[in-house]
């Protein structure tokens, strides 16, 4: 799967309270959650984000609470892939489980700026900055986790396995 869009750049240690503050956790509807994605940190995000856009972030993205509302809010806002230097453990699992692709690349994060146009190939982990033409390679995703993403998340993956 290949996507293309604008880079939304974030720093290190973006915690799940910043992705979606707890005061918005009284609902579990995905579109409702998306309305408050990055509400305090980046109030322009929800209005500006377009399908195909990419989140670029520093290390330890998604640290803190286990709330799956965080990757859901991001996914429902239209993001298909997050590229970060590293991810917090629970967020990493949650993103795969709901079919939100995440890639790790120090170089891409260092070289890309907010607003850059980027393309990403989720199956190969290849990224490109469209203006400079520069290529970056993310760490390969373990095969079984790639299958989960391709199935659209853990539930569909389990269903497919059962059907097979």
């Amino acid at each position: 799967m290949k996507i293309e869009g604008r880079a939304w750049k974030f720093g290190d240690h973006v915690d799940t309270d910043l992705i979606i503050p707890a005061r918005f956790l009284n609902v579990s509807d995905k579109d409702e959650l998306a309305k408050n994605c990055f509400a305090d940190l980046r109030p322009d995000f929800v209005k500006g984000v377009r399908p195909g856009d990419v989140i670029i972030a520093g290390s330890n993205f998604g640290c803190g609470s286990s709330r799956e509302h965080a990757p859901w809010a991001i996914k429902a806002a239209g993001i298909k892939v997050i590229v970060a230097k590293s991810f917090a453990r629970i967020f990493y699992r949650n993103a795969f489980n709901i079919g939100l692709a995440i890639l790790e690349s120090e170089e891409a994060v260092d070289m890309l700026s907010d607003g850059d146009q980027v393309s990403a190939d989720l199956s190969s982990g290849k990224l490109q900055a469209l203006k400079s033409g520069r290529h970056f390679s993310a760490k390969p995703i373990p095969a079984f986790m790639r299958e989960i993403i391709e199935a659209g998340g853990l539930i569909n993956y389990v269903k497919l396995k059962k059907a097979a």
Binding site: G64, S65, S66, R67, E68, P71, I90, R93, N94, N97, I98, G153, L154, I155, V158
Partner: peptide, 27 residues
């Protein structure tokens, strides 16, 4: 295994306990 990051609390008893998200927990 708990859908709450502070599930790790029960390590105090000599148990293995870890937090996950809701999809993992549902499964």
């Amino acid at each position: 295994i708990g859908a709450d990051s502070h599930t790790c609390t029960y390590g105090a008893l000599g148990a293995f306990s870890a937090g996950v998200g809701s999809t993992d927990l549902g499964v």
